[in-house]
């Protein structure tokens, strides 16, 4: 069976700096893989390279069995970029942002039943009532969920998520884990960048850890070494990737809904 994601020797150079030095990665159909590593280790750059958002200097990428480019069936791929905000210059509603997720490849206009699809996707992230609200009026966590809905709206077979629950409060994280669980139960493939496994931990089948733009671990997901149950825990994220394993306890304590 062809893997959903296949990367061989992916090297990425951005403004003269080597960011990824030959990454090999494969994600099988129906698998849930977490991509871990410290800040700046290249997680976002890797997923950007995989979905064609940054150019690859050398190496190959295949998505759903097709080399990156026009041959890929983009309608079956959903991507959630790492973002603080879904808002931009002009007032935009949550519905409009999610509708843009219905376009892919050469489909440049939304389908006729777009509104129903958009409502369904917003329902998956619990934001049905915010369809016509400007995204800039939503909280950071709600904006993040709008971006998740934008990826889910085309019912993708492969989901690529870059820190989808960063800045999302714990109940919403759990709700997101439930949604993700339902998707994976239906055979969807997931590659998710995480800072901490958090609520998604039970779903993750395999973990790939990056350090300085190279894979240093590919196998069983790390188990939390210690719990950060202490409410004073101030969430300073480790810059030493070895500590990334230790820091997989409770997340998002500081976020308001």
């Amino acid at each position: 069976m062809t893997p959903a994601v296949l990367a061989r020797g992916v090297r990425v150079v951005l403004s003269g700096n080597v960011i990824l030095r030959g990454i090999d990665l494969s994600v099988n159909d129906g698998e849930v893989v977490a991509l871990l590593g410290a800040n700046g280790s290249g997680k976002s750059t890797l997923v950007r390279a995989l979905v064609g958002a940054v150019p690859i200097e050398s190496g190959e990428v295949e998505l759903l069995g097709k080399p990156l480019g026009g041959a890929v069936d983009w309608s079956r791929i959903g991507y959630v970029p790492q973002r603080v905000s879904a808002a931009t210059g002009v007032p935009t509603t949550a519905g409009e942002v999610v509708t843009s997720g219905l376009l892919h490849g050469h489909r440049l206009r939304p389908p006729r039943h777009a509104r129903r699809l958009v409502l369904d996707a917003l329902e998956l992230v619990g934001l049905t009532h915010h369809l016509d609200r400007p995204v800039r009026e939503l909280s950071g966590g709600q904006q993040q969920r709008v971006l998740i809905a934008r990826a889910l709206v085309r019912d993708p077979a492969l989901l690529v998520l870059d820190e989808p629950v960063a800045g999302v409060d714990l109940p919403s994280q759990e709700a997101f884990a439930t949604t993700l669980g339902a998707l994976t139960a239906r055979g969807r493939t997931v590659l998710v960048v995480l800072h901490e496994l958090g609520a998604i931990a039970p779903l993750v089948q395999r973990a790939v850890v990056l350090r300085h733009g190279a894979v240093v671990h590919d196998g069983a997901p790390p188990t939390p070494a210690r719990e950060h149950g202490d409410p004073d825990h101030d969430h300073v994220h480790p810059h030493d990737p070895d500590e990334a394993f230790a820091d997989t306890g409770v997340a998002g304590l500081r976020w308001e809904p």
């Binding site: 950007r48 979905v51 026009g70 983009w74 791929i77 970029p81 376009l103 440049l108």
Partner: peptide
Amino acid sequence: EFARAAGL
């Protein structure tokens, strides 16, 4: 970035 990742 999202538009690129959608193959647009």
